[in-house]
């Protein structure tokens, strides 16, 4: 079908870019877009200026603003856009991902073309710090039987167990997104030294409350399920309860701190 898939890559207008420059208040430089001289803020274009839009059916649009690496600045904008879009008539759901956002709407109540336009407009005009996350404290028993990979992770990092616990519990993590399974938090902010590739063979059963590390990401198991991540501790904090509203303990934009209850040998 001609043109199929050519729904992505909408470029912002010059006015929007200028508006954004004012908001960002960063140094500017000249670039040429289709022969037109425009001013843009001096930040990586892949990060802020050109989100890619695509369809997930008639009633869902995915805005993807991911560059090569995860960006906290982009994520803050994602949360703010999610909040702005959630307030629109016809929008049923906003689903922040990692440097991307899916909106779900009734295409009979909100025309998809209009939804796209509003999404791009929100992207260029929102004020990211409008989203005030909460601080969530997660008490953790590190190591021992319920943190069986703590020693191997320390060995991999070339650090003592105490140092791993210190670095893991000193950091402030940001809940970038919640999803995949109910209540699962995608956290950014892990000390890069603590990164460790996932297990070649996933465990068939990782217990609820397990405090885990997979690649460069930190996480917590909201339910007992298979996982290839390394288990360094256990928390008793329930992350998901369908009988509670909201059901997930953490929301995108929240800040998480792991508090040391005990370090077991």
């Amino acid at each position: 079908m001609p043109g199929a898939g050519n729904n992505a890559g909408l470029l912002p207008t010059t006015e929007s870019v200028l508006l954004m420059r004012q908001r960002l208040g960063k140094p500017e430089k000249l670039i040429y877009h289709d022969g037109v001289e425009i001013l843009v803020a001096e930040i990586p274009l892949t990060e802020i200026v050109s989100p890619r839009l695509s369809m997930e059916g008639a009633g869902a649009i995915l805005l993807d603003a991911a560059g090569a690496v995860f960006s906290d600045a982009v994520q803050a904008r994602i949360w703010a856009v999610a909040a702005a879009m959630a307030a629109l008539d016809g929008v049923a759901e906003t689903v922040p991902g990692m440097n991307n956002l899916m909106i779900v709407f009734d295409p009979l109540a909100l025309a998809p073309v209009k939804a796209e336009k509003q999404l791009l407009e929100a992207w260029l005009t929102v004020v990211p710090d409008a989203v005030a996350g909460r601080d969530v404290d997660i008490p953790v028993v590190y190591g021992g039987e319920t943190g069986e990979d703590l020693v191997s992770l320390a060995n991999h990092a070339g650090l003592s167990v105490e140092e791993v616990v210190r670095r893991h519990s000193d950091a402030v993590y940001s809940v970038a997104a919640v999803g995949a399974m109910p209540g699962f938090v995608y956290l950014s902010g892990l000390d890069p030294q603590l990164a460790m590739p996932r297990r070649a063979v996933p465990r068939m059963k990782v217990e609820i409350g397990s405090v885990i590390i997979g690649g460069a990401q930190a996480g917590i198991m909201p339910c007992t399920a298979p996982s290839g991540w390394h288990i360094i501790g256990r928390t008793e904090v329930p992350l998901f309860d369908p009988l509670r509203d909201p059901p997930a303990a953490c929301r995108p934009g929240d800040r998480i701190r792991f508090r040391v209850v005990e370090v077991k040998a």
Binding site: E56, G57, V95, G97, M102
Partner: peptide
């Protein structure tokens, strides 16, 4: 290498 993103019934 895609970052995690929202998916829908029908994807």
């Amino acid at each position: 290498e895609l970052f995690s993103h929202g998916i829908m019934p029908g994807t």
